[in-house]
């Protein structure tokens, strides 16, 4: 029938971030799971000694394995956009808290027996994945507000375009200059990268930045001229443009630094997860074969 009051598809209207999603539902679940595991570990009599071979050990191991496999599917969940109701935020929330609970579950499963073998390899990989994940949670919680403040309504393409515009203006403004001064401007135009290599992206430090060198040199020239008489207006114009470019570069580099920090850990987290899945397979197979 037309004209019916159709209810909208259910949607999450609670304005909560992934850490507080559903009034911290998954923190509670994961916390409960960990406490349960610790209590069981303390109370259940495990002979000869706690390890993966006891009944509790099997239980924890199975739980841990299922959790790890499920946790790794978030990569698919994020990329396969289906039409049915789901919330990636809820997934992230569960991913974070259940992932953290693996520290307890995995370690208790091992019964604190660590050594130089394929079993410990899986534990170590798991811990590395978790540690990189914790880094991820920290940057996800801290950086977005800074990223937004630094962006100041400019988009990344706009930031880069602003730098290109300044380059064009510098190029035009440098036409009347003498060779030596023009060469200084060329430093800014030719020896100045916005992003650079991984280290530079991560730190936003560019000690050899051509623009900074050009700015310092031209500033020196202008200062020198000022002491004698009025400085060359063409040169002060260049200096003004170099300073503006400096500010634009700083903003873009901060933006890139934060974007890199928000992404870099995934380049550790994801491959390590794949390694963990391989190590887990080896661990499970070897346990069953050499039992």
């Amino acid at each position: 029938m037309r004209g019916r009051a159709v209810t909208r598809a259910p949607r999450d209207i609670a304005h909560e971030g992934f850490l507080t999603h559903g009034r911290m539902r998954w923190a509670k679940v994961a916390g409960g799971l960990s406490v349960l595991a610790i209590v069981a570990y303390a109370l259940v009599d495990q002979t000869p000694r706690p390890n993966g071979g006891t009944a509790l050990g099997y239980l924890l191991g199975t739980l841990g394995l299922l959790l790890i496999v499920w946790l790794s599917t978030i990569g698919l969940r994020k990329r396969i956009i289906t039409t049915k109701p789901y919330s990636l935020k809820a997934w992230t929330s569960a991913h974070v808290y259940l992932g953290l609970s693996l520290i307890v579950i995995g370690t208790l499963h091992a019964g604190f027996q660590l050594g130089w073998n394929v079993h410990t390899l899986a534990w170590v990989l798991m811990m590395l994945v978790i540690v990189s994940g914790i880094y991820g949670v920290v940057v996800y919680a801290r950086l977005p507000a800074q990223l937004s403040a630094n962006r100041n309504e400019a988009t990344q393409p706009q930031m880069l375009e602003a730098i290109r515009t300044l380059d064009r203006q510098l190029d035009t403004a440098a036409q009347p200059l003498a060779r030596a001064e023009a060469d200084l401007v060329r430093l800014s135009l030719e020896e100045c990268e916005v992003s650079g290599g991984l280290w530079q992206r991560l730190t936003a430090r560019h000690p050899r930045c051509g623009n900074a060198r050009a700015r310092d040199a031209i500033q020196g020239l202008v200062n020198e001229q000022m002491r004698r008489a009025k400085p060359d207006p063409a040169l002060t114009q260049i200096l003004f443009l170099l300073e503006r470019k400096d500010a634009a570069l700083a903003q873009a580099r901060r933006h890139i630094r934060m974007k890199t920090q928000l992404e870099i850990w995934l380049y550790l987290h994801v491959p390590m997860t794949i390694a963990l899945l391989v190590a887990l397979t080896a661990h499970v197979l070897s346990v069953f074969i050499y039992w």
């Binding site: 909208r8 598809a9 999450d12 909560e16 994020k78 039409t83 109701p85 990636l88 935020k89």
Partner: peptide, 27 residues
């Protein structure tokens, strides 16, 4: 608004951190 998709707006569903919200001004 992803009409016809039972899950509602995909932009909100697919946001991993809960940053994307859809609101109406009265609320």
């Amino acid at each position: 608004m992803c009409s016809g998709q039972s899950g509602g707006p995909a932009c909100v569903r697919a946001c991993p951190t809960g940053a994307a919200i859809r609101v109406n001004p009265e609320q």
